[in-house]
C-alpha cells in the first residue's frame, strides 16, 4: 500500500527552524513505521537522520512522536496508525533537537544518574549472591522493564516546562532500587526525589503511562514513591 510520511526535518547547518516534509513510500500494512523510515532513508533521501539500534523494541533508541504520540518506531505497525492519512513523525519533545529525529539525550541521562540507579549496600560483600524471595522481587518487577527510551519523560508536560523536573523515567529507575530488598540506598534516593523538582511536581496526567512502550505503570510507581516519602515523614 502507498502511504505518506510527514517527517519534521531539521538540518542544523542550513535551517533555523524545523519544517515538515512529506514522503510517499510503498509498504505493507504489517510493516513498522521504522521500516517506512528506512525506505525513505535508503531509497529517497539519505540525509534523513534518526536513531535505531536493535530495531526490536529492546534498545530504546528509536522513541519518536508518531501521530502526536510518543512511541517506538520499531514497535508501531503502519496499520495501527491510520495509514489512510499522512503519518506524522517528529522528534520527541522537551530535549534539545540536534538533527531531524535526533535529540540530545544528555539532560535525560543526567536526571537518570542523579537518582543513583545502581545497587547501594553497606558492610562487607557477601561471599555468595544476595538472595531475594520471589515476593520481594515481585515488589519492583514492573519498574525493571524500563529501557530508557525517554518516551515517558518527553511526553510529560511538567518536563516540557524547563526540563528541571526529574521526569518519569528517572523516578521509575529510582523506584526500581527503592523497593529492592537488597538495596540500602533507599533513604538517599528518597531524599533526592523529595526535592523541589522531584516527585511532588508530578501532576498525575498519565501521559507517561500511556507513552511507555513497555507498559510500565509509571504513574503508579511515582505515586508509590510519594507514599513512601509520606509514610517516612508523617
Amino acid at each position: 500500500m502507498d502511504i505518506t510520511l510527514k517527517i519534521r526535518r531539521f538540518d542544523p547547518e542550513n535551517d533555523t527552524e524545523p519544517h515538515w516534509e512529506a514522503y510517499g513510500v510503498t509498504v505493507l500494512p504489517t510493516d513498522r513505521v521504522l521500516d517506512a523510515l528506512h525506505k525513505v532513508k535508503w531509497e529517497v533521501d539519505g540525509s534523513l537522520t534518526f536513531r535505531r539500534s536493535c530495531a526490536h523494541g529492546v534498545c530504546g533508541s528509536d522513541a519518536m512522536r508518531i501521530n502526536g504520540r510518543n512511541r517506538l518506531a520499531c514497535k508501531t505497525l503502519i496499520k495501527d496508525v491510520n495509514p489512510d492519512k499522512p503519518i506524522t513523525v517528529e522528534a520527541i519533545k522537551g530535549l534539545p533537537l540536534q538533527k531531524d529525529l535526533v535529540v540530545d539525550m544528555e539532560p535525560f541521562f543526567d536526571a537518570y544518574r542523579d537518582v543513583m540507579p545502581f545497587l547501594i549496600t553497606r558492610g562487607n560483600e557477601p561471599t555468595r549472591e544476595r538472595l531475594q524471595s520471589s515476593k520481594d522481587r515481585e515488589r519492583f518487577d514492573d519498574t525493571t522493564k524500563c529501557i530508557l527510551c525517554a518516551a515517558c519523560t518527553t511526553s510529560c508536560p511538567v518536563y516540557w516546562v524547563d526540563g528541571q523536573y526529574f521526569g518519569p523515567a528517572a523516578i521509575v529507575n529510582a523506584h526500581r532500587f527503592i523497593f529492592d530488598s537488597r538495596d540500602e540506598g533507599a533513604q538517599q534516593r528518597l531524599e533526592i526525589l523529595n526535592e523541589r523538582e522531584g516527585v511532588w511536581r508530578c501532576r498525575t496526567t498519565f501521559n507517561c503511562t500511556e507513552a511507555c512502550p513497555r507498559g510500565i505503570e509509571i504513574t503508579k510507581a511515582i505515586q508509590e514513591v510519594k507514599r513512601a516519602l509520606l509514610t517516612r515523614a508523617v
Binding site: 539532560p107 544518574r113 542523579d114 543513583m116 528541571q164 523538582e197
Partner: peptide, 8 residues
C-alpha cells in the same frame, strides 16, 4: 551525581 542547575 551532581546539581544540575542553581534552580535545584
Amino acid at each position: 551525581p551532581k546539581v544540575r542547575d542553581p534552580r535545584r
